[in-house]
């Protein structure tokens, strides 16, 4: 997937496999519902096919695609996403405002910011803003859990 010769090849192969799978699923769709997905499958195989062919015909054009991507750097967004998923799940157990405040304090610290007063103030401000906007103005009811 990354911007390298092999990244290009692997993505092309993955997209071709995906297109074939989706096309195969589409053959079950009744009433002409298969036409458009099959058309997209065809196009995707074509585009990915050209992409793949290009890596063999003109591999030198990928030499310029220099990449410096450390695995740790690539994994960080995944870790943060996992934290957000846990956060969403926790909302329904612990309550919206407590969880949100905790995330807004914890995550900045975790990504390396060292300004405790600013972090606490902005987290409190954002939580209050959400309360005012969603709960007071829009009349929405946020999930309440064990804590507020």
């Amino acid at each position: 997937m990354p911007n390298t010769l092999w990244g290009e090849r692997i993505s092309a192969v993955l997209f071709i496999a995906g297109a074939l799978y989706m096309g195969w699923l589409a053959t079950d769709f009744p009433a002409g519902g298969d036409l458009f997905p099959l058309f997209v499958s065809g196009l995707m195989v074509l585009v990915a096919g050209i992409m793949l062919a290009r890596t063999f015909v003109a591999p030198e054009s990928f030499a310029a695609w220099r990449v410096r991507e450390a695995p740790a750097q690539l994994a960080k967004p995944i870790a943060i996403t996992a934290v957000v998923i846990l956060y969403v799940l926790a909302i329904f157990r612990i309550g919206y405002y407590t969880t949100t405040f905790a995330l807004l304090v914890g995550l900045p610290v975790a990504v390396g910011l060292r300004r405790p007063v600013f972090i606490l103030a902005s987290a409190a401000g954002a939580t209050a803003f959400i309360y005012a906007l969603f709960e007071l103005a829009l009349g929405a009811q946020m999930p309440r859990g064990l804590l507020f």
Partner: peptide
């Protein structure tokens, strides 16, 4: 700071 803005956007 981006370290505060990022989490806020996620929330």
């Amino acid at each position: 700071p981006q370290g505060v803005l990022g989490p806020m956007i996620l929330v």
